[in-house]
Amino acid sequence: MVLVTGASRGIGRAIALAFAGEGARVVLAARSAERLAQVENEVRDLGAEALSVQTDVTSHDAVAALVEASVNRFGRIDVLVNNAGIGKVGGIESSAFADDVRQTLQASLFGMITVTQHVLPILRQQGSGAIVNMSSVMGRKAFARFGSYAIVMHSVSAFSDSLRQELAGTDIGVSVIHPALTATDLLREATEAEMPAPFRHMTPLSPDDVAHAVIAAVRRGKRRVVLPRTANMLLLGEAVSPRVGDTIAAALTRRPIAKALGMSRGKTYHETISNRPEPATRSR
């Protein structure tokens, strides 16, 4: 059984449908009951069993109820995908910056910690399982105007690395996924001018691309996945020297270079999401 948080839209929905397509039973968790019901119907249309549980991952009681409902229905949890989260755009000098960090930490990191702490005893009792934590390329390299999000995504990376080492010697795997810009509603509220400069002409990944990478990570026991592969060049440069990383990040603001690297090959983020209805709530 696969438990997916933030499953009502975007990457979470795609992950749930991808696992359902593989025949997995799926538990869907998110704040929007209406959206969850729609995704649950989509999962069942694929012939898979589904349970949707309206959940705010920042609430310990809600998370406890989610995990209890999951085990009562399916008897076990094989895969946990921590996907719920939010993102904010804004400069560090903005008066809202500190609040943006706090809100993002609460939703994207502390929610992940709470869900993981409730699920881990079950995985230990089973003696097996997999935990997948959704981070971002910015969990390894920050960009201007996306500092609050990058702070939290770095924290998710650190949490995942620590957890993986604590579970060494068990049959519980930990994977952390680092997608680049993805066509979800995460940044819908940001105007194109407010976006980090390298993002303005990038062609976003599709949620399905990320979902397939998650399934591959679980199957192969991958500890870390970066999407697209060309983004590894940026992370390698950052590992060598912050100066090199900053130079590559600056180069990505130029469309010809981004295009040569395969990161600008079609519609931009705002062009991709412009025809979608605006959601009541956002998820990755």
Rank of each mutant, 00 (worst) to 15 (best):
V4C: 06
G6V: 02
A7I: 11
R9W: 13
I11F: 10
G12I: 04
R13H: 04
F19P: 15
A20E: 04
E22K: 11
A29C: 08
R31D: 11
R31Q: 06
A33L: 13
Q38E: 14
V39G: 03
R44F: 07
G47V: 11
A48D: 11
E49P: 09
A50W: 06
T58W: 04
H60M: 15
D61S: 12
V67G: 02
N72F: 12
N72T: 12
G75T: 05
V81R: 01
N83K: 06
V89D: 02
E93R: 06
F97Q: 01
D99K: 12
D100W: 01
L105A: 12
L105H: 05
A107H: 07
A107L: 06
I113E: 15
T114D: 15
Q117C: 05
L120C: 05
M134P: 04
S135R: 01
R145F: 11
H154R: 01
S157T: 13
A158Y: 01
S162L: 15
S162V: 14
R164G: 01
R164T: 02
Q165S: 13
G169K: 11
T170W: 03
T170I: 02
D171P: 14
I172H: 07
I172E: 06
G173E: 02
V174N: 03
V174Y: 00
I177N: 00
L181S: 12
L186Q: 07
L186N: 13
A193G: 01
E194S: 08
M195L: 14
P196C: 13
F199K: 05
R200L: 01
R200F: 01
H201Y: 12
H201R: 15
M202Q: 10
P204W: 03
L205F: 10
S206H: 04
A211E: 06
V214E: 03
R220K: 12
V225Y: 02
V225L: 04
V226A: 02
T230K: 08
A231W: 13
V244K: 04
G245W: 02
D246C: 14
P256S: 03
P256H: 03
A258F: 05
M263L: 15
S264C: 12
T268M: 03
E271I: 04
T272L: 03
T272E: 09
T272P: 11
N275Q: 15
R276K: 15
E278Y: 08
S283D: 15
R284V: 14
